[in-house]
Design a protein around this nucleic acid. Structure first.
Length: 827
RNA sequence: GCCCGGGUGGCGGAACUGGUAGACGCAAGAGACUUAAAAUCUCUCGAAGUUGAUCUUCGUGUCGGUUCGACUCCGACCCCGGGCACCA
């Protein structure tokens, strides 16, 4: 007999063999099949930065297990992969190494595609797409034009973060401590024109739709809800004294309107100019605004910046009681939210309170806690909770809720106010002054204005991509690009030179995957109708708002454009935790990066996959541990040995339960218990770590039994046990299992194998251990028949020697029996 | 400040619906095999006390509560991680 030796399974040869087969035979290619239930598994596609990192390994391992598991269950599984290929790093690489962004990107894609293949991931590579490909972005341009027709696209002037040395607009997240992330120059605000998507038109739907996302983590739903930030209140006009104008404010607390003691308007408020011009306050206010605008940049960093303000000299009138209210310019008021002007109620708002204290403005209490009366006219802090109204004219005595409604109604009746809903969500600014992105397909004509590029002229191709050393200057510096003629009047005109935010590409790629090669439409209705929505989406929680919100917006837009028939793109969302090492996120600067290539070369893809699934449940952070990888590798070698040393059993037919001897019955039972545990762990919450533990236990049991009871153990039981081990492990370690599956005489690949069925009868224990407690403390354990009735169990417990010792002759006051679990005797 | 997560052995993590805390793995220690090592196998492995296999007490961030029984439920607090941050 062959003794245990130090042979390890030859992962290099095995993985190469199966990967080649998957490449040649493409078993994961799928087409719609109305007779089969579909399942769409999707992992967030990567940015082709050069090479994959451990976060990808984890993400794609999880997705692959789900894809393979669902296939084994008979679903028609679509599992695509592609590249989020536009973006700034490509341009940086171009600057740094003199490589064209296109070349850099496609080289990276080629390399990373091989890395993904080397992981043995079961993608339908026929559906691969790269967003920088004109065949992709031409459809994005078409969608843009259709959105334009629908009035969902507009252009406006706005303030952006501008880096003067890089000559580009920076996204908010690219501004670090007020400076450019790349060159460290201070970022300056700059006003310029930009294109916007009207996501706010869908604000209500995006918010209400969150209710239907029962398969999403609550955390993500909450983040989106807060981000959209719907609040209901009153928009109210305050007539300005000695002016022909009104100051409109928005408040969510109309019930406090009798407590208004001043007004605060944003420094950018358009009315200020009229209020101050020609008055003695003019210079002071101007000076204040100038300083405040500069401060604003820096202040963004402070946790709670101090509030500043200045009196404009103007007054407005409270329409409810006719009081004169002084108007202040204040640096804490946001122009971009509400109306840019707020009524200040220092008694009931913390910010107004701070401001009033600082500038010694009156504080008037108009809401009192329901349970106590206060006559305090100088409270120590703002009372912000709802309560009962006082000193509020006809509304005094009402509770806050009733007062809100009554006050809004009153304002509407008298025509100086209206119920209004506002959102924190702003329209999505998609303009980027960069080269490596989708060109926005419009033309500016002196005579005709903004003219959309006619559909027949799409795509508007990014210049310079067809030659390796083509130009990659920003489009506004490429005259060959922007010089054109107007499609309407034929006169000389200028192309738009902004490109789209790269989040636009990732907002609809999951839909394009369903018909990635269509040359007639961005999304084939029929294919999308079959495959969508994505049943399981998997990715990092860092996209909780931006990408996931944009995708939900786009899905609705595409629905309204007639391409899709769904409201929500992702039925279930799994947000995986980060991969960390030594307690910190892997990063070059910390020097704690683990390169997947090294791991795969040393241990093989299966081991790396297994460890990344075993070390932690997917939603939690995963602490990388080199020794843990050894453990995973050890386990696979153990399975390999177990199967190779029991090859002879694979000729045997399975046994009937009643012909099994005791060790065989035990193994048979454990086999079915394991099927149940693994299925439940995957089904319930994708806890592969516990699923793997369960298989390890079965393997340990089989190893012990084959060693100890070698002669008695019946091959007709061992065989299905070992086959089950392979079937349960296949989604996680596919090359390894395929190899052993073939070795053990199966002529069809595991891609055709079904997930093992669970037989409750086979899993049933005849005996179990029942705990006996005395006063809640475990004092003894009884081994009893599984079907023992409670009365008998109780008697046995009372008769137990150890139990009697602890009862010390006392009478039981109460005996609790939990069926098949425990007996607790209270004395 | 507000909103989410999370705190369990030396480490990663288990524990069904309130019912044996620490599955599985890693590390560590001891032993077997070996000329030796590697590999493999076996045993030990929360703390303290006691002890001849044993047993007792304590133990899931802290304090309190509910319960026959609490990692699990309730209340207050501490710490760590993440998100938001003057949104009127």
């Amino acid at each position: 007999m062959k003794m245990h030796n130090n042979d390890k399974y030859d992962f290099k040869a095995i993985e190469a063999k199966w990967q080649k087969r998957w490449l040649d035979e493409q078993p994961y290619r799928v087409t719609p099949d109305p007779d089969r239930e579909k399942y769409y598994v999707l992992e967030m596609f990567p940015y082709p930065s050069g090479r994959i990192h451990m976060g990808h390994v984890r993400n794609y391992s999880i997705g692959d297990v789900i894809a393979r598991y669902k296939r084994m269950q008979g679903f028609n599984v679509i599992h695509p992969m592609g590249w989020d290929a536009f973006g700034l790093p490509a341009e940086n690489a171009a600057l740094k190494h003199g490589i064209h962004p296109a070349r850099w990107t496609y080289d990276n894609i080629a390399y990373m595609r091989e890395q993904l293949r080397a992981m043995g991931l079961s993608y339908d590579w026929d559906r691969e797409l790269a967003t920088c490909d004109p065949d992709y972005y031409r459809w994005e341009q078409l969608i843009f034009l259709k959105m334009m027709e629908k009035g969902l696209v507009y252009r406006k002037e706005t303030t952006v973060n501008w880096c003067d040395s890089c000559q580009t607009v920076l996204a908010r997240e690219q501004v670090i401590d007020g400076c450019c992330w790349r060159c460290d120059q201070q970022v300056v605000p700059r006003t310029m024109h930009g294109w916007f998507f009207k996501i706010t038109a869908y604000a209500d739907e995006l918010l209400d739709g969150l209710e239907t996302l029962t398969g999403w983590p609550e955390k993500v739903v909450t983040m989106q809800r807060n981000w959209i930030g719907r609040s209901q209140g009153l928009a109210c006009d305050f007539r300005i004294e000695n002016h022909d104008q009104v100051l409109t404010i928005f408040t969510t607390r109309p019930d406090t309107i009798f407590g208004v003691t001043f007004m605060s308007v944003a420094v950018e408020h358009p009315l200020i100019e009229q209020l101050i011009s020609g008055t003695e306050h003019e210079d002071r206010v101007r000076d204040f605004i100038r300083k405040a605008l500069v401060e604003k940049q820096r202040q963004a960093l402070d946790a709670e910046p101090e509030k500043h303000g200045v009196f404009t000299g103007a007054y407005c009138l409270n329409p409810f009681n006719g009081e004169r209210i002084p108007i202040f310019v204040a640096d804490f008021v946001l122009m971009e939210y509400g109306t840019g002007a707020v009524m200040a109620v220092p008694a009931h708002d913390r910010r107004d309170f701070d401001f009033a204290r600082k500038y010694d403005l009156p504080i008037r209490v108009v809401v009192q806690p329901a349970d106590r009366e206060t006559t305090d006219t100088a409270p120590a802090e703002a009372y912000v909770e709802p309560g009962l109204l006082v000193d509020s004219g006809p509304f005094s005595g009402m509770d806050s809720q009733a007062a809100k409604e009554a006050i809004i109604a009153h304002a509407e009746q008298h025509g100086f106010g209206k119920a209004r809903t506002t959102y924190r969500l702003r329209d999505w600014g998609i303009s980027r002054q960069r080269y490596w992105g989708t060109p926005i397909p419009v033309i500016h004509c002196q005579r005709c204005g903004i003219v959309p590029v006619p559909e027949k002229d799409l795509p508007v191709v990014l210049p310079g991509t067809d030659t390796p050393d083509g130009s990659h200057a920003p489009l506004h510096r490429q005259e060959e690009f922007y010089a054109t003629t107007c499609p309407e009047c034929g006169e000389a005109a200028r192309r738009e030179t902004d490109t789209m935010d790269t989040f636009v590409e990732s907002s609809w790629y999951f839909a394009r995957y369903t018909s990635p090669r269509s040359t007639t439409t961005p999304i084939d209705r029929e294919a999308a109708g079959y495959w969508l929505p994505v049943d399981q989406y998997i990715g990092g929680v860092e996209h909780a708002i931006l990408h996931l919100l944009y995708s939900r917006f786009f899905t609705r837009v595409l629905r309204d454009l007639g391409y899709l028939a769904i409201d929500e793109p992702f039925a279930n969302l799994l947000t995986q935790g980060m991969v960390i090492k030594d307690g910190a996120k892997m990063s070059k600067s910390k020097g704690n990066v683990v390169d997947p290539n090294d791991l795969i070369n040393t241990y093989g893809a299966d081991t790396v996959r297994l460890f990344s699934l075993f070390a932690a449940p997917p939603e939690r952070d995963l602490e990388w541990n080199a020794q843990g990888v050894d453990g995973a590798s050890r386990f696979l070698n153990k399975v390999n040995r177990l199967i190779r040393s029991n090859l002879d059993c694979f000729g045997s037919a399975p046994l009937d339960a009643d012909t099994m001897n005791p060790p065989s019955r035990l193994l048979h039972r454990r086999t079915h218990q394991t099927i149940k545990r693994v299925s439940d762990n995957i089904e319930k919450n994708f806890h592969f770590n516990t699923a793997i533990s369960a298989v390890m236990e079965l393997v340990n049991q089989a190893t012990t039994l084959t060693a100890e009871s070698r002669k008695e153990l019946q091959p007709g039981v061992l065989r299905p046990c070992l086959e089950t081990v392979l079937l349960l492990l296949f989604p996680m370690v596919p090359h390894f299992c395929e190899e052993l599956w073939e070795l053990t005489g199966h002529d069809q690949s595991m891609d055709h194998a079904a997930w093992p069925g669970f037989d409750p009868e086979a899993a049933r224990e005849d005996e179990l251990t029942v705990v006996v407690q005395v006063n809640g403390k475990v004092r003894s354990r009884l081994t009893v028949a599984a079907d023992i009735d409670n009365e008998l169990l109780r008697q046995q417990a009372l008769a137990d020697e150890r139990v009697r010792h602890f009862m010390a002759g006392k009478q039981a006051k109460k005996i609790i029996v939990v069926q098949g679990k425990l007996v607790n005797i209270v004395i």
